[in-house]
Design a protein around this nucleic acid. Structure first.
Lengths: 218, 218
DNA sequence: AAATTTATTTAGATTAAACTAAAAAAATCG
DNA sequence: CGATTTTTTTAGTTTAATCTAAATAAATTT
């Protein structure tokens, strides 16, 4: 049985090895976990002894099959809980992370099985990230800029490319938010701006720049 | 912010001080927590320094107002999660304890507020135990032996007095379980046995002994 | 390639929560 | 009441997870 700390290290190593390079550096782990490199070295040795990672001194670590299994279970739990929080408890997307970070460590296979069932076997979390199944299998849903959608196509906002606060304030002003449903009502060829419908409620015009910085899924 | 261990000690001290005597002994705490008296003394000192309990060496502890507040919050969370597990995730009563024991330590006031709302503000957990509100207020629901019910009265099985396995096997055989709805169809004066309806499904006769060992609520 | 910088590891401490064994206080019993 | 038993505390360890400071290995730069 792994501790919370061990699970968090594995999750981080797994994420870094998929988003960055396969071999993960001590410093990279320390940075994402807000811990010191010396502490990481200690934990690395422990996880290596447990067969969760492959470790060669001074050469970073890679995750083992066993470690990947654990990491994917934690990710699965995290994302299922996020769906629960948003779908059932009406949390906003920006409120779920810290809570899911705690809930992901609850140990009970039955709980996860039942939660999955209760949520109707979701394949993606509210951010559009895939939820691994019991075997760790999942399929990534492509995220495309809103500017790439066809006329009359629709999708959900799952991320933004540019997260400076002026941009976010603008999105807020027009009623766009993570999770909002967008439909492309018109594509203005003159300046590549778009007329879009947000949440079947309001229609607005947005510039090419804006549409390139909003990421959509589905 | 209190640790899991601290919360568990407070919960235990609170429970012992209400079910037993107000001053709780070191040994009693050690026994319920499956820990050693020496460890309890250490933790007692810590909780005392934090103002959670009142402590006089060699004379046991009593819970402070602040400590009671914390304990009741943990109890509230535990019982709300139990309702969730049983009502929403179809857990049986005997399966919920270990999981709720973990979930009760999740830190997020918003989560508990929303969970409470989602569950429609339950006042009692599946065992018939009261759920404290945000202010720690609650009302105990009386548990009476099935033998004390009036003719045609009904209630829910919330506990058994005698938990030897022969008795439990018998209950299983007649289809009675924790949470089952019972209605008194007839009271046989000759031997004080009862004819009861279980879950609106089957009717059975049970002896006086049996009816005195089944506890009912509502 | 040598010197310097950066990354990683080692050594030694710290904190929380547990433990054992021994000492001390309180309770009980003859 | 004094002796014995029980309960509680103290003293000293242990383990997990962290830290700082120093040492060493690897990478980079001139």
């Amino acid at each position: 049985m792994l501790s919370f700390a061990e699970e968090n290290y594995l999750k981080t190593i797994y994420h870094l090895s998929t988003t960055d390079k396969e071999d993960v550096s001590t410093n990279a782990i320390a940075e994402t976990l807000h811990t010191k490199p010396a502490s990481v070295t200690d934990m690395i040795r422990k996880l290596s002894n447990k067969g969760m990672i492959n470790y060669r001194k001074y050469h970073g670590v890679s995750i083992s099959d066993e470690g990947k299994k654990v990491a994917l279970t934690v990710v699965r739990k995290h994302r299922l809980w996020e769906v629960f929080l948003v779908d059932k408890l009406k949390f906003n997307w920006d409120e779920v992370h810290d809570v899911a970070e705690q809930l992901e460590h609850i140990k009970s296979p039955l709980l996860i099985k039942r939660l999955d069932e209760f949520l109707n076997y979701p394949k993606y979390d509210p951010h559009g990230d895939p939820i691994p199944d019991e075997n760790g299998e999942f399929q990534i849903k492509p995220k495309v800029p809103l500017s790439a959608l066809d006329l009359n196509a629709s999708g959900i906002i799952v991320a933004v490319n540019d997260s400076n606060s002026l941009f976010l304030q603008y999105l807020d002003k027009i009623g766009a938010y993570l999770g909002a449903k967008i439909k492309v009502l018109d594509k203005i060829e003159f300046d590549n701006s778009l007329e879009i419908m947000i949440d079947n409620k309001r229609t607005v015009f947005i510039s090419k720049e804006v549409s390139e910085n909003i990421l959509i899924t589905e």
